[in-house]
Design a protein around this nucleic acid. Structure first.
Lengths: 193, 193
DNA sequence: TAAAAACTAACGACCGTTAGTTAGTTCTTG
DNA sequence: CAAGAACTAACTAACGGTCGTTAGTTTTTA
């Protein structure tokens, strides 16, 4: 059972790191702080992971893999581009509720990844973006989407949903369902009546 | 002329700091790096500023003051809420072209501000947000804007325009005017045709 | 020639990480 | 099935490096 205990301890370390990386940023978070929150000494962390880098990499790739897996599922679906985009917007909102800390770290701290991991993380992101853009382009071709620059639409959507990760923790006066519906409506139909 | 030289040197330090804070983050940027880019020794920086904190504070408040000044001007204008919102969206895009580094730092590194500055920065941001929200609410009351939660609309707009700061540096295949028009159209009329 | 602004040198704090050790648990084997 | 070997995961201590900053001195400038 040593393996089991070790693996939950390891997960505990990674989750604690994610929480602190989000809160204070990667560079400003110390191994000693992570250890303290976990309830062990800093040196003990190294029985479970190779180094601080590894913590960041694990968090970032866990998130990017989740996004890509979900995107793949949505691509498979034989619904219209508009429906796919709606599904993707909802995905970006819902995924925050499942892993706020991870999402925030992957979005804001990825630049601190070491060289090699950085390269593949950026590649994964570019892959995600170009596949998302392709769906938008299909929607434009089919005449369901306005004739805007697809990149502009892509980044505006991706950017627009990101405030959810900042908002999530706080009071949450807005019900998740209202949030999703309002954002989808705003992005699809616009602010203007 | 010592004052003049000093003040441009000082500005040089602040701008270099902004560039590096954006690039590597506040915590990961060292005074020695800033000094090297300016072409002096790290210790010499302290002839111009009190400490690293002051650099961050100056950048953050320069930006927040600019936003608030512009918002005030737009509020004064006796145009419709919709027109005011359009103007604000364009403001958020244009301001990036004038001070990318500052905007990025104010948006991403403000949490490293020391206690007291942090408090007033957050207050300034809350002030900006609530005044922006008020314009949205007026638009809803007047029936020009869809009945969505005003906070959701506010944060979606503020968030949506933020990708411009990430995009700005790169190849810039999109003309600024097209960018502005597309984003305004997207947020006001929506993606769907 | 006095003030401004640069320099060199170093301090104390803290960082990520390693070494060495120990207590407890699991596996192996006579 | 008992006993010792091996392993796991914690600990303390400390190393080498870097950080922001200060002190003291020299150079530049108006």
């Amino acid at each position: 059972m040593a393996k089991k205990t070790s693996s939950t301890r390891r997960e505990d370390i990674v989750e604690t790191a994610a929480k602190l990386f989000k809160q204070k940023g990667y560079a400003a978070t110390t191994m000693r702080e992570i250890a303290e929150q976990v309830g062990i000494e800093a040196a003990s962390i190294y029985n479970h992971i190779k180094g601080k880098d590894e913590l960041l990499a694990e968090i970032c790739f866990r998130v990017s893999n989740a996004y890509i897996a979900q995107l793949t599922a949505i691509e498979m679906d034989d619904s219209s581009p508009i429906e796919k985009i709606k599904a993707l917007i909802r995905l970006h909102i819902r995924i925050v509720f499942e892993d706020v800390d991870g999402i925030s770290v992957a979005n804001n701290e990825w630049k601190h990844l070491p060289e090699s991991a950085l390269t593949s993380f950026k590649a994964a992101r570019r892959d995600y973006e170009s596949r998302f853009a392709k769906i938008i382009e299909q929607g434009i071709e089919q005449g369901d989407i306005q004739k805007v620059n697809a990149s502009v639409a892509l980044f505006t959507i991706l950017s627009a949903v990101r405030w959810v990760e900042l908002w999530y923790k706080s009071d949450r006066q807005i019900a998740p369902q209202v949030l999703e519906d309002d954002i989808v409506s705003l992005l699809l139909n616009g602010l203007q009546k």
